[in-house]
């Protein structure tokens, strides 16, 4: 789980080109959207593709994905439970 969280943090920073942040800046429970990393709806779409590409998870509803992208901790649990690869 810790390894997965680390991996997700790295992927998020790279996919979203968040040059201002490092993995150490992201706490497991920090909100990804809004206040925390300040991500927005376009980032959500990027993360949806990231989950598909890296873990074979297909999300189609951007609204539903909001709850999954709540924090790295929530996201990691979801990936752990639903990953196809």
């Amino acid at each position: 789980m810790e390894a997965l969280k680390q991996e997700l943090k790295e992927s998020i920073l790279e996919a979203l080109n968040l040059e201002e942040f490092t993995v150490a800046d992201i706490n497991d429970t920090d909100p990804l959207f809004g206040d925390g990393l300040g991500l927005d709806s376009i980032d959500a779409l990027e993360l949806i593709v990231l989950l598909d590409k890296d873990y074979g998870i297909k999300l189609t509803d951007p609204e539903e994905s909001k709850s999954i992208f709540k924090s790295v901790e929530v996201l990691a649990s979801y990936v752990e439970a639903n990953r196809k690869k």
């Binding site: 996919a15 376009i42 779409l45 990027e46 593709v49 990231l50 598909d52 590409k53």
Partner: peptide, 9 residues
């Protein structure tokens, strides 16, 4: 496949 929207936008 696996296209993200940022570059398109």
């Amino acid at each position: 496949e696996f296209l993200t929207p940022t570059a398109f936008i």
